[in-house]
Simulated assay, not measured.
Amino acid sequence: MAISAAAFAAQGTFSGGGDEAGRVIVQLPPSPPPAGTSSFAAATPAAASFSTTVGGFTYDWTALQAAIDTDTEVPNGYFIVGNATDPGYLFAYQKGAFGIDRVTPLASASKWFAGTLAMRMAQAGIVSLEDPMRPPLAFWTTTGTKKDVRLKHALSMTSGFNANPLVGGCQLLPGLTLYNCAKDIHNLRYDSLRPGNAPGAQYSYGPHGIQVAAAYLEAKDTSLAPGTLPVRERNIHELFAQHVTMPLGMTNTTWYNPATSPPTNPWIAGGAFSTPRDYAKLLRALLGGSFIADMATFTQQRTAGLTRLFVPASAANWEYALGSFVECDTPSLCATSKINSSPGAYGWTGWIDRKTGYYALIATEISTGGDRKGVELEQVMQNLIETAIATRTPSS
């Protein structure tokens, strides 16, 4: 894929209409370095040959490893490329002090978890993407356009919330409950503040819709937590484990800092932690197409042609699905794109390419400019991975 490696501010600098364009959302790291800086060494020594043999084919990863090594803005990271059929990785590389089992904050790479959980619960017959917020969220209004918000809107940044992603917000208050946080978001001015923001009318990237979606999933579930007195419905952490992490063997993935206790109001859009080994399991499962049977619904663009408010400045050509971006060079190409990704503010970036048939992960933690760097390096890696796959040779 030949997307330019422009600066990507997926969680930092936003563009859109109105006087508030360019605000910085609370979940973002500092702004990217000034334009003109280069992340690649001017002079690079010749790279040693690096190849792997997997599934009867030999892959030459020399160029990919060299690109990773010469990127001066990513001093530490773990990099994985795999496919849906071979149990081993096609490429796995540790740069610096970043092991495959390092537990790392994901920032907005957490959003793919929310979409995955919703699709798994839909697959189990518990929810539908067309579900309205009420009655599970009993406080939800029955008047105005806000009453028409569906689960699909909340997961796709088209709910009509997030039109003004101000600093702060109840998603950053772990002592609340998801239910009460969703109620706080619901009570934000909506029809009166922005009459045009009916669900499905605007695309606005931010945390509020995802938080509401999680509250709905938790409230909609009717399964009981075993061994509890009094008996109660499962919380979002238990649902995530039941439907996602346990089936995939993701033993070090949580929607909170594992050094703390599970919050009753986890930050769904940006508060998860995982390891390279765990996250690669999710990517492999999504690429395989059986973990989520309806991948077409899960990965399709849902923001084409909509008014854009507070969207990632350097993802202006990309559309949004359910917890992931649909990558494309121009908006018109997103309708047929097979690449979905979920970048995070600290550079953690995972993606699947259903056309070429691989998944890949940049696992890193960069305190400054990671939101830009993750996708910048991803674009470089995509071309090199495609070339390595296209030029693989039979091993016998």
Results as ranks from 00 to 15, higher is better:
residue 4 S to E: 07
residue 19 D to W: 11
residue 19 D to V: 09
residue 20 E to H: 10
residue 21 A to W: 09
residue 37 T to F: 06
residue 38 S to W: 05
residue 44 T to N: 10
residue 49 S to Q: 14
residue 49 S to F: 12
residue 57 F to T: 04
residue 58 T to N: 02
residue 60 D to W: 03
residue 65 Q to V: 15
residue 76 N to T: 11
residue 87 P to F: 08
residue 89 Y to A: 14
residue 93 Y to P: 03
residue 103 V to M: 13
residue 106 L to D: 01
residue 117 L to P: 01
residue 132 P to W: 04
residue 135 P to D: 11
residue 142 T to A: 15
residue 158 T to M: 05
residue 161 F to N: 00
residue 162 N to P: 09
residue 168 G to F: 13
residue 169 G to Q: 02
residue 176 L to C: 02
residue 178 L to C: 00
residue 179 Y to D: 13
residue 180 N to D: 13
residue 190 Y to S: 00
residue 191 D to F: 08
residue 194 R to M: 13
residue 195 P to T: 02
residue 198 A to S: 14
residue 198 A to H: 09
residue 201 A to G: 01
residue 203 Y to G: 01
residue 210 I to K: 00
residue 212 V to T: 15
residue 222 T to G: 14
residue 226 P to I: 12
residue 230 P to S: 09
residue 230 P to N: 08
residue 231 V to G: 06
residue 235 N to C: 07
residue 237 H to A: 09
residue 245 T to V: 12
residue 250 M to W: 04
residue 251 T to F: 04
residue 258 P to S: 12
residue 261 S to H: 10
residue 261 S to P: 04
residue 264 T to E: 02
residue 266 P to R: 00
residue 266 P to Y: 02
residue 278 D to P: 05
residue 281 K to L: 11
residue 286 L to W: 02
residue 295 M to G: 13
residue 297 T to R: 01
residue 308 R to K: 13
residue 314 S to M: 03
residue 327 E to T: 12
residue 328 C to A: 10
residue 328 C to F: 04
residue 328 C to H: 01
residue 335 A to R: 12
residue 337 S to C: 12
residue 337 S to L: 11
residue 341 S to E: 07
residue 344 G to E: 05
residue 350 G to N: 03
residue 358 Y to M: 03
residue 360 A to E: 04
residue 360 A to G: 03
residue 367 S to C: 07
residue 371 D to C: 06
residue 380 V to W: 07
residue 383 N to W: 06
residue 383 N to T: 15
residue 392 R to N: 07
residue 394 P to C: 12
